[in-house]
């Protein structure tokens, strides 16, 4: 019974709060630019609208075009369920769950890329190619980051790994994970969620042909992924395990807000990178995580 309540609580948090983040980012961007901007709840309205709309399918699309987004959504949600939510803990925690989390994200990526390729469009092929290629570097960075947390805490279970602070390498890890967050969620400077120039996009171009409920599922999944990375970043850097439950929840909330506002500020103040510069930035993110790993390793050895 308690288990079911726990699951429901987590589901509610992830499903209901996630679409807030893009709204906040847009609000920050509007504020920096001196505009009023769309309401914070805009994504909720969009999702509700898309859910009621009909679907236009490409004549080339196989059933995978609709099934892919569903699988990707479940995969992202599954990864989120493994991530502890501060004092609320994770729905499920076992040794090695951190790897399951990383690979669930990979599964989501595979599904998005597959669905994008369904249409036979060159634009979507381009986006899928970019998505899977840049993932090679982000995955290296993520593994380096979780390895550093694992070395730090001596555990391979997320709940234990994320409880203590990241120690000496916290700043490096924060910078690295923040860059990974931007890349994985296709924000500026890697991608521009607002642009309509297909040639320069990654994620947005992959979903060009989606419409109606499948598009709603994709957008909602992307919001969950953003929240997921914000929570991961906050918990990796701050010692939530040492605080009282109420304080931990507050700190977590504040941390997520700071990350979100940070994304908004980055988006307002930076321009999108030229594509040939993207690997350089991702390599930098990887190196930041790698040095965090080395500091964790060295810190423990002494």
């Amino acid at each position: 019974m308690i288990l079911i309540l726990d699951v429901l609580l987590h589901l509610a948090i992830w499903l209901l709060l996630a679409p807030l983040l893009p709204g906040i980012i847009n609000k920050v961007k509007a504020w920096v630019a001196g505009r009023r901007g769309p309401p914070v709840l805009q994504l909720y309205y969009d999702l509700a609208k898309l859910w009621r709309k009909g679907v236009v399918l490409s004549t080339l699309a196989s059933p995978g075009f609709v099934i892919g987004p569903a699988v990707g959504w479940i995969a992202v949600l599954g990864a989120a369920m493994l991530l502890p939510l501060g004092p609320a803990g994770a729905v499920l925690s076992f040794r090695g769950d951190v790897l399951l989390m990383v690979y669930l994200l990979a599964l989501a990526r595979f599904c998005t890329a597959w669905a994008a390729m369904e249409t036979g469009s060159a634009f979507e092929g381009m986006g899928a190619a970019r998505e899977v290629s840049y993932a090679v570097l982000t995955e290296a960075a993520i593994i380096a980051a979780v390895l550093s947390l694992s070395v730090q805490s001596g555990s391979t279970s997320l709940v234990a790994m994320l409880a203590p602070a990241a120690g000496a390498g916290a700043m490096l890890l924060a910078a690295g994970l923040f860059t990974v967050l931007l890349a994985e969620n296709c924000r500026v400077p890697f991608d521009d969620p607002n642009t309509h120039l297909e040639l320069t996009m990654i994620h947005e171009v992959m979903v060009l042909d989606h419409s109606g409920p499948p598009l709603a599922v994709i957008l909602h999944g992307a919001a969950i992924k953003l929240l997921f990375f914000a929570v991961l970043l906050t918990e990796a850097v701050l010692p939530l395990g040492k605080l009282s439950p109420a304080a931990a929840a507050g700190v977590l909330l504040a941390g997520v807000m700071v990350v979100t506002v940070g994304v908004g500020l980055v988006e307002s103040l930076l321009a999108r990178l030229a594509f040939r510069r993207v690997p350089l930035l991702l390599t930098t993110a990887f190196l930041l995580c790698l040095f965090a790993l080395l500091m964790a390793w060295k810190g423990g050895a002494e």
């Binding site: 679907v55 236009v56 490409s58 004549t59 609709v66 569903a70 599954g78 249409t119 409920p213």
Partner: peptide
Amino acid sequence: ILVATAAAWLWRKAHATDLRRSPTWDC
């Protein structure tokens, strides 16, 4: 199980409302 359920659900939802086929939009 979840993946199968979600896929079936989305599949039915997509086909419940008016579903149209057209050439790939491709901008």
